[in-house]
Design a protein around this nucleic acid. Sequence first.
RNA 1: GGAGAGAUGGCAGAGCGGUUGAUUGCACCUGUCUUGAAAACAGGCUUGGGUAAAACCAACGGGGGUUCGAAUCCCUCUCUCUCCGCCA
Length: 423
Amino acid sequence: MLQLNFIRENKDEVITRLAVKNFDAKELVGKIITIDGDRRKIQGELDALNSEANTLAKQVGDLFKSGKQAEANELKNKSAALKESSKKLEATLASTEEELNKILVLLPNLPSIKVPKGKTPADNEMMFSEGEVPKLYAGAQPHWELTTQYDIIDFELGVKLTGAGFPVYKGKGAKLQRALINFFLDNATAAGFTEIESPILVNEASGFGTGQLPDKEGQMYHVTGDNLYLIPTAEVPITNIYRDTIIKSEDLPVKNCGYTPCFRREAGSYGKDVRGLNRLHQFDKVEIVQIAHPDKSYEVLEEMRNYVAGLLKKLELPYRILKLCGGDMSFASALTYDFETYSAAQQKWLEVSSVSNFENFQSNRSKIRFREANGKPQLAHTLNGSALALPRIVATLLENNQTETGIKIPKALVPYTGFEMIT
RNA sequence: GGAGAGAUGGCAGAGCGGUUGAUUGCACCUGUCUUGAAAACAGGCUUGGGUAAAACCAACGGGGGUUCGAAUCCCUCUCUCUCCGCCA
């Protein structure tokens, strides 16, 4: 959520910058400014009225104390009249504020000035790429064949237990999952992130805080009996830890990480993109989250970007980094880097991580603030990134490392798997 | 699932209808003292709206009500804790 003051004072900038996200904000911004003007006018009137009523009430009290009943009663009537009009104003104010908030949450975050214009993923800016695309032998197969061949992931069994998109990992497949999770967590904690194990069900306030609710309600699994949501990413609980808190400035940046399963309904997905591990309803992910001083958040973003790149390098996977264009960015993000690894058998790039700076868009919703020495509280910047999401890493790992005699495990992972080959 | 208790500032904890946005303690900040620190003393220290700055307004878990006046009384919702039951 953008800050009201900022919109009021930078109306044209808001409109121009949102145009980079292909969002036409002209009408909404105009409405916001009009309604906000109304709101402030009403608030002013109400304040004046309340002030008068407060004075009156005090006088009545004093009169009663000094035994002047008659005069007190007279003032009482006056006060009752005031009350009626203040009640009306209060109701108007409440509906005005509601209307304002409804529109305010419709505005996406401003893209950073570094964000390239563009409409589709084709317009994303290639930043960096590293690693060789492997040459596979003649009989090489996509991962959904390999998983069956080596009996390490059973998609059919998942359908039996739950439904499509809930695979069952078996044997070395299950061990590989556990190895990757531990590998990612160990790396993150070595890089200074504090490991968090959080709930994977969250309440409505948390969903709102990070921006999943109200607009993306349909993407989360909703437990209606208790009105809780299964998290689509650990970003939700780990960021919401700081909802409604004022952090001491010396505690910034806050660096947390966590492994959780993630749940996504992926309504509307279909076709070959969802084949195998490419798109699941439940998957494992290690997430890194930072809460940073506004002046430092872009340095922090670069730090996180380098960190994720380091992981892919250790796993010996060919990858590239894209700076997302305005049209491909998420609603809440100000700047996003996507990491993609090359899946040799599918012959395409798969997104395995997304690292974003949300500036104060999330913190304004969730009131995550910090205070500098003797200063007023101000909004902090929030950032997060996948480090990493498992399924597509597993997919490229299996495909790229397949040989005629089995699948090779990258060196860095062997201490975690305990085996060098899947055979 | 049953019974009871409670929700107040960073924390602890008063307050039970009238200058209480809130006593006090701890923590924290500033000053005096000290070579420095500690101690002691003095002062400061919730958040939001509003303003050039003030004034002013709002908020004592959320919502509603009673009253001239509510943190204080009533209703309702949510959450937490204790005991019992069940149980990884």
